[in-house]
Design a binder for these strands. Structure first.
Length: 498
RNA sequence: GGCGGGUUGGCGGAGAGGUUACGCAGCGGAUUGCAAAUCCGUGAAGACCGGUUCGAUUCCGGUACCCGCCUCCA
């Protein structure tokens, strides 16, 4: 069996991965707070951990991996969004507005992440469905002396957990010394954090031993991972920005609530994303969502490939240039895959399996960049079996690639060996302009054959320029004429040509 | 201020203590009515200083610069 090696944030070392139970490999990844569309940075961990999920399924068997990613649907940002709608005149209750907001956001999230080729996790628990287990865990922490109730709040007693700070490499004393925030007066210690807080009438709340309130941010992940994966499981992932305080607090809560267990064995953190060399932020005006890109015509596969081109533990820079390059690569792949079967060796791609060297690349701390290098090699060497197997493991749907990126080719073969015309539409539905393009191809072919005799190429070049301007790639060779509508194809510009 | 990460050729981006990464772009050639596409060939690197070593871009230390976290954030 392949040995997967992962860089464990907890030990700061690359370690051989050894699941607690190979028959049930368990992974928990922190999911989104569902108050708005997922931005480009939110997509990175989704694709990174989707790739790991696919690798684990490949190595241990799809039915032996359990992947949990939560939806945080109780949060002050959600409340704020709902409140804004209410103040804008919406007559419905806050509860209804909050529910509407979380539901629509989850729907967006699914649609956007599906477009990136990410498999849905096995479980996508919502925090609001686990309030009971959270309350139970908090009660346990109080009973164990790890938490205390004050002024309607319940706080975690950081000093009661000796290893606090181990994950993020901080000491409690250093953090207090460098703290910049005001400390609530009811805290025993400045670093103590909220497990439960009171809710006003307008805010969502649940009854609890401490009055009507709602959970703090961190407790949900501790409670849900415990309910769905147990007190000990294999992998916990998330963005580097969650390492502190979120993951540190999760560890403290879970390890104090279940001191007999080890909580997550391996911690993985992906580095952050930048845009054209700068942090993505609304104030810099370079903030955009996954949906923004999709709407601009950047296919999800392109976004996925750009994500995978940088190792997950390095900062990733999103640039238009990278997207352009990735699109070019995908087009070449798709054109090769959908090429006429008579022009390449026949292989039964339904039997394709991921090449060992690609599995090895991913098994080496998810070296997706190296895996993509192998993909380029298979394309260059026309190794279709390897190519398809690798694309599949990396989360690219071969049929979707062919449909989206191959477009179609229009051939007019002139020579006697391959005479006649052919139209191959690779997976896309017939469009009204196809007939027009076909006619243009015939015209161009005719003009060119005439020009070969008369040596007057002006009409040929004129039509070629017009087609090029419409985003159609024109290829002419001894064999004949080919037209390939490219990424910038604009059927409107075909009007008037004949 | 505290903590963590990074710095590879024009750009992106890997592996490996000693022999070509690779992709894109460039350049030269083949091919083409001209192009495009394709094919062949090709130059170019390891922030800086020091140490370990027969030998370091790869290991160790320091300097500079960049980035992130410490407050909601993937």
């Amino acid at each position: 069996m392949v040995t997967i090696r992962l860089h464990n944030s907890k030990t700061r070392k690359k370690e051989a991965f050894s699941p607690l139970d190979p028959a049930n490999v368990r992974m928990y990844v922190c999911g989104p707070t569902v108050y708005d569309r997922a931005h480009l940075g939110n997509g990175r961990p989704v694709v990174v951990f989707d790739t790991l999920y696919r690798l684990l399924r490949h190595v241990y068997g799809a039915e032996h991996v359990t992947y949990v990613r939560n939806f945080t649907d109780v949060d002050d940002k959600i409340n704020a969004t709902a409140l804004a709608r209410k103040e804008a005149g919406d007559p419905r209750s806050m509860e209804a507005l909050i529910h509407e907001r979380t539901e629509e956001t989850i729907g967006w999230y699914h649609a956007d992440m599906d477009a990136l080729g990410a498999l849905r996790p096995d479980h996508e628990p919502r925090a609001t469905a686990y309030i009971g287990p959270m309350v139970a865990m908090i009660e346990g922490l109080i009973a164990g002396g790890h938490a205390y109730a004050r002024a309607g709040h319940v706080l975690f007693r950081v000093r009661s957990y000796k290893a606090y700070g181990a994950l993020s490499g901080r000491s409690v004393d250093d953090m207090i010394a460098g703290a910049r925030v005001e400390v609530a007066p009811f805290k025993e210690d400045p670093m103590d954090f909220v497990l439960w807080k009171p809710s006003s009438e307008e805010e969502p709340g649940w009854s609890s031993p401490w009055g009507r309130g709602r959970p703090g941010w961190h407790i949900e992940c501790s409670a849900m991972s415990y309910e769905l994966l147990g007190a000990s499981f294999d992998i916990h992932g998330g963005g580097l920005d969650l390492q502190f305080p979120h993951h540190e607090n999760e560890i403290a809560q879970s390890c104090c609530a279940h001191p007999e267990a080890g909580f997550a064995q391996v911690w993985l953190h992906n580095e952050m994303l930048q845009v054209e060399g700068k942090k993505m932020s609304k104030s810099l005006g370079n903030f955009f969502t996954v949906r923004d890109l999709l709407d601009q015509g950047v296919p999800g596969e392109v976004i996925r490939m750009v994500y995978l081109s940088t190792h997950y533990r390095k900062p990733m820079d999103w640039t238009a240039e990278k997207a352009r390059e990735a699109e070019g690569t995908l087009r070449k792949i798709a054109q090769f895959l959908s090429r006429d079967p008579f022009t390449k060796p026949w292989v039964d791609v339904s039997k394709a399996v991921p090449p060992q060297e690609v599995v090895d690349a991913l098994a080496n701390d998810l070296n997706t960049s190296l895996a993509l290098t192998h993909v380029s090699k298979y394309l260059k060497d026309e190794q279709e079996m390897q190519l398809v197997g690798a694309l599949d493991l990396l989360g690219f749907d071969v049929e979707a690639l062919k449909a989206k990126f191959a477009g179609f080719e229009l051939h007019a073969w002139d020579n006697g060996f391959a005479s006649g015309h052919s139209l191959r539409a690779s997976g896309i539905a017939p469009a009204p302009w196809q007939d027009q393009l076909r006619a243009l191809r015939d015209t161009l072919s005719k003009l060119r054959q005439d020009a070969m005799q008369t040596k007057n190429f002006a009409p040929v070049d004129a039509l070629k320029s017009a087609l090029t301007a419409a985003g159609v790639e024109v290829r002419m060779s001894k064999a004949g004429v080919e037209l390939l509508p490219g990424p910038g194809f604009d059927p409107a510009k075909l009007e008037g040509l004949k």
